[in-house]
Computed example of a mutant assay.
Amino acid sequence: MQMKKQALVMITALALSLAGCSTASDSPATTSTTSGDTIPANPTTTPQETASPEGTERMTARENQENTPITIRIDGRTVNGTLSGNATARSLMDQLPLTLTFSEFGGQEKHAELPQPLSLDGVPAGDDADPLTIGYYAPGRTLVLYYEPVGHYTGIVRIGTFDDLAAIRDRSGRFEATLSLRD
């Protein structure tokens, strides 16, 4: 009976020590802290997002926020849109309001270079985009308003939608648009 108790104690101790170890199936996108919290391992993570409990709480609340309403103003015309709750969309929200110069690309989209790259934490390496999609093309660091369907491309991240296809599709030449959070 004594040997069974010793074996049980050893097995329990071994199990507890292994519980803190990571395995190959653990996500490489996060790192555990000594307090048991997980933080993104991506170097684009800002200290504000992980350094203090307040920053962590704010980030958690924003992560749960989906369908954030925005406006896209073009020559006095307002196009309504929504941004999703992924890290890339949240990264764009942090830059708003933002005035960008858009131009035509490939007869499918209008695109504009962003002043800063957006986070790619937790998003797929590539995607496709339907008309009325707001996207981010990571290799070009561009915000994209799609008005025709595009196939799957590495680097496309869907971050939201807009509601007026003609306002974007029918716009010719270069134009400025201001994106802002909608009240």
Rank of each mutant, 00 (worst) to 15 (best):
T99A: 08
H152G: 09
C21S: 11
N86C: 09
S25F: 06
A167M: 06
S32C: 11
D37R: 07
T178D: 05
Q116R: 10
S27Y: 00
L114W: 02
L143G: 02
A7S: 12
T45F: 02
N64Q: 12
A51K: 06
H111G: 08
V79C: 02
A129T: 10
T99Y: 03
M59I: 12
G85Y: 07
L18C: 14
R73Q: 14
I134N: 00
N86Q: 10
P69C: 06
V9Q: 13
S17Q: 14
P47G: 09
D128Y: 13
A24Q: 11
K4E: 15
K110M: 06
M10S: 12
T78P: 00
T56S: 04
A24R: 09
L92S: 03
T45A: 10
D128M: 08
K4W: 13
D37Q: 12
E66K: 11
T30K: 01
G81I: 01
R182N: 11
T82W: 07
T50W: 01
T71K: 04
E113G: 08
Q65A: 13
M59G: 00
E109P: 04
H152M: 07
T46G: 07
R169F: 05
G106P: 02
L181S: 08
Y136R: 05
T161W: 06
A29P: 00
P43S: 14
N67D: 14
G126V: 12
S27D: 15
T56I: 12
G160V: 00
A89D: 05
R158E: 13
A167I: 04
H152C: 04
I39T: 10
I72D: 03
S27L: 07
I168S: 04
D75N: 10
L143P: 03
T82I: 10
S35C: 08
D26M: 10
E176M: 07
F175C: 05
I39C: 02
E54A: 14
N86H: 09
R174A: 15
L165A: 10
T88E: 00
D163I: 08
P139R: 06
S35G: 09
Y136Q: 05
R141T: 15
S35P: 04
K110Y: 05
P53M: 11
S91D: 08
A29H: 05
L16R: 04
S103N: 12
L118G: 01
T71W: 03
S172G: 09
D75Y: 01
S84H: 08
S119R: 01
A138P: 02
L118K: 03
P69S: 13
A89G: 09
T56N: 03
Y136F: 10
P117K: 08
L132M: 15
D164E: 13
A89Y: 01
I39D: 02
A41F: 01
T178F: 01
Q108L: 11
E57W: 06
P40K: 00
S52R: 05
A15C: 11
F105A: 15
A125M: 10
G135D: 06
T12H: 09
N42W: 06
G85V: 10
A41R: 01
N80W: 04
G36W: 02
P53Q: 13
V9P: 02
T71R: 04
L120C: 10
R171S: 14
A87W: 03
R90K: 13
G173H: 08
L143Y: 01
E104H: 13
L83K: 02
